[in-house]
Design a protein around this nucleic acid. Structure first.
Lengths: 223, 223
DNA sequence: TTGATGATACGTGGATACAAAAATACTTTA
DNA sequence: TAAAGTATTTTTGTATCCACGTATCATCAA
């Protein structure tokens, strides 16, 4: 329903939808910096529509936490404080932990091979320095979430990914190594293979929480 | 930021905000039934404004999952399937579980007394058959969540409460007894007093999951 | 009677226009 | 020169307007 997790087909039907996707995409790719003002008229001109659908899109983006809307003061790109970033990772940890737990019974051998493939692709993207490591990484997490077969859960997790994506990109661009990502994700797969749902849930939680402090380096220090 | 959890002060600044609160309130109190169409013009007339702010409010309400917006087909009150209801309770269980875990270190004796008071109030409302048992119940959960001091977490949980509130009201109206609610909530307090964070988290999770099947009786059978 | 077909009315999405508020630049004065 | 107040320009918030899509209902054929 929203927030391109691994990928999203579906042609935009309404102008509002188009504006929503357009701005969301721009935000996720870091085209605007936190604090930047988004001027409805400019964006409307970019996509060739009037301000109205753009304004409506802003409401949804604000609900997603991607922008902040203040009365009579317009729309500014949301920035995260360190606290907020940690909070998002705490929430992600329990949500994706739940997803893993629910996904486990659904994973057969074929699916394990797919996960291995995704891990491999992520690794290759990481080594080649290509910044679609971020995309691959989300693809991996997204695949597991999808297996939980819980639309609302998937939706919420994907919204959180959208919020942190810009920081993931900065992180990746800054230090070329995707750190110990390979082992961590391999551990998730291993835990899934073990068949112990609670154990797998915990491994995913730990994995997510472990990356929070790393990303925290990249949020603007004070505000 | 949204979704009246225990209560919400703050006068509405913009017309959109007013429309949002107005419709949300109506939905939570069950004034409209699932499947009902919400016609912007009518609602606009009710509050004395034009359709535009109402339409914008619809976008947010759709993000909250309270209504469904389909292109060229307007705004319809969202209804829950049994699956969706269970899913919401699964999500609530991990989210409120997290909230309990994070809240625990913040609770002092004074706070425990407050929780006891809230439990007592909920009980009284339940016995008097007053339907603000639902409000008291949310107040209780909301208090614990608030203690976690995590704004986004609180926001998400409160949004989920808003979605299920109509069903809680139907449940309460239908069978006058608030079932074993008292014991369940007392157990949460007891677990909090024990000081074992993981135990308290689990008690809250179990409490929430246990009410799902009861409420499931009240969602429209098929669709 | 039932199912297809077309006309009509209603509602939605989007654009434009206008008023109010905020931000900015400018002038005046101490 | 700096500060304060004023005027101008932007930009936001809301209302009105128009074109198109959808649903409803009546008509007609099977």
């Amino acid at each position: 329903m929203q927030a391109t997790f691994p990928a999203e087909p579906q042609m935009s039907a309404t102008a509002e939808e188009e504006a929503y996707r357009h701005v969301q995409r721009a935000l996720r790719f870091g085209r605007y910096k936190p604090g930047d003002r988004l001027i409805p008229e400019e964006i409307a001109a970019e996509i060739g529509m009037s301000r109205m659908p753009v304004r409506e899109a802003f409401r949804r983006l604000a609900s997603d936490g991607l922008v902040v809307l203040r009365p009579n003061r317009g729309c500014v790109v949301a920035g995260l404080t360190v606290d907020e970033l940690y909070e998002i990772f705490e929430i992600r940890s329990v949500l994706e932990g739940l997803a893993v737990r629910l996904a486990m019974p659904r994973i057969d051998e074929e699916e394990f091979e797919e996960l291995d493939r995704l891990l491999e692709r992520m690794e290759r993207a990481g080594q080649s320095g290509s910044s679609d490591w971020v995309v691959r990484h989300q693809e991996f997490h997204g695949r597991i979430c999808a297996l939980s077969r819980r639309p609302k859960l998937i939706h919420q997790i994907s919204a959180l990914h959208a919020v942190i994506e810009p920081y993931m990109r900065i992180w990746f661009d800054d230090c070329d190594k995707p750190h110990s990502a390979r082992e961590e994700h391999a551990a998730v797969i291993a835990a899934l293979r073990s068949g112990d749902e609670l154990q797998a849930e915990k491994v995913m939680q730990d994995h997510i929480l472990s990356t929070a402090p790393i990303l925290a380096e990249f949020v603007s220090p004070s505000r």
